[in-house]
């Protein structure tokens, strides 16, 4: 056991964060301000998500941390180690075994259940920010549901690219009320947000927490004549052969050879273990 308080933060701070989380769950999509603490890692490394996870974890929990779908990248490994050390909780790479999953920029492929919590790391929580830089004004716009500006952004996309080119951080409307930034997840993941698990969003530098309760309606904004499309690379996974998962493109050599692999490493591994195989599955294995 370490000399840290359970999960690093002191009890008063965790209580403050839990209050913000509960308020966020009560008002889905609404950005609740909270007194974000200095964490032993730089901003941009998930300080918001870590604080939300710290306030959420109990000693009985099993934690999984992913970065862009992968369990083995620096960010995911260091956060997992952080909680192993400060909270002594069990950790896992298997989505189904985890009770709390902290994620950066992905939703796991496997369907989540009612006893799971998904914690997102959020760089910029304000979806209106790039069109209206004044925070006083964006708060008023949320309060009065003045969301015309969101569609101006999509309009610009179509007029410039012939289609809505926004591929990640695609804005959604939660339970018919607040427009919300789903954090930089690919828009392929947007439809999954209507799920059984609790979704919590933490932005450390911006000091905001927001939440989507289970089975909440989450609609991606679009135009009648340019409906929302959850897109992905038009390939199957070269390792496990999955047709339905979000893929990363990997350049193999200077000759331009490349492969597509599942961004969700756990999903890919479990499929291969179940005997599925893709184009390069045999040689890679």
């Amino acid at each position: 056991m370490s000399d840290y308080n359970f999960a690093y933060l002191d009890e008063q701070t965790k209580r403050m964060i839990r209050r913000a989380i509960l308020k966020g769950l009560a008002v889905p999509g609404y950005q609740v301000p909270f007194a974000s603490r200095e964490m032993p890692m730089p901003y941009g490394w998930g300080t918001g998500g870590v604080q939300v996870s710290a306030a959420t974890l109990t000693p009985e929990d099993t934690l999984k941390v992913i970065d862009q779908g992968a369990d083995d990248t620096t960010n995911a490994v260091s956060i997992r180690k952080f909680f192993e050390r400060t909270a002594c909780v069990a950790t896992t790479e298997e989505t189904a075994n985890a009770s709390v999953i902290q994620t950066r920029h992905r939703i796991p492929e496997a369907e989540l259940s009612e006893d799971q919590i998904l914690v997102y790391q959020v760089p910029i929580p304000e979806p209106l920010r790039f069109l209206e830089p004044r925070e006083t004004e964006t708060r008023k716009m949320h309060a009065l549901q003045e969301y015309g500006l969101m569609h101006v952004k999509l309009y610009e996309d179509i007029s410039q690219h012939g289609a809505i080119a926004t591929a990640y951080a695609y804005p959604v409307k939660v339970e018919g009320r607040y427009v919300m930034d789903p954090s930089p997840i690919p828009k392929f993941d947007n439809p999954k947000m209507e799920m059984a698990a609790i979704q919590l969003f933490g932005a450390g530098r911006e000091q905001r927490i927001y939440a989507v309760p289970p089975y909440t309606k989450v609609v991606s904004l679009d135009f009648e004549d340019y409906p929302f499309e959850a897109s992905k690379a038009d390939h199957s996974c070269d390792l496990c052969g999955a047709e339905d998962s979000y893929l990363d493109e990997v350049i193999l050599d200077d000759a331009g050879n490349r492969m597509f692999v599942c961004s969700d490493t756990d999903y890919c591994r479990s499929r291969r273990e179940a005997g599925h195989s893709g184009r390069l599955g045999e040689e890679a294995a």
Binding site: L131, G148, L149, H151, V152, E156, S159, F223, E224, D225
Partner: peptide, 27 residues
């Protein structure tokens, strides 16, 4: 004006603000 938004987007903003959701007709 919104200087970083195209002329069409500038004109369309008020339409979208009052609920117009058809790109073709806005344009």
């Amino acid at each position: 004006l919104r200087m970083s938004v195209s002329a069409g987007g500038n004109i369309g903003e008020r339409l979208m603000a009052v609920g117009d959701r058809h790109y073709g007709s806005i344009r």
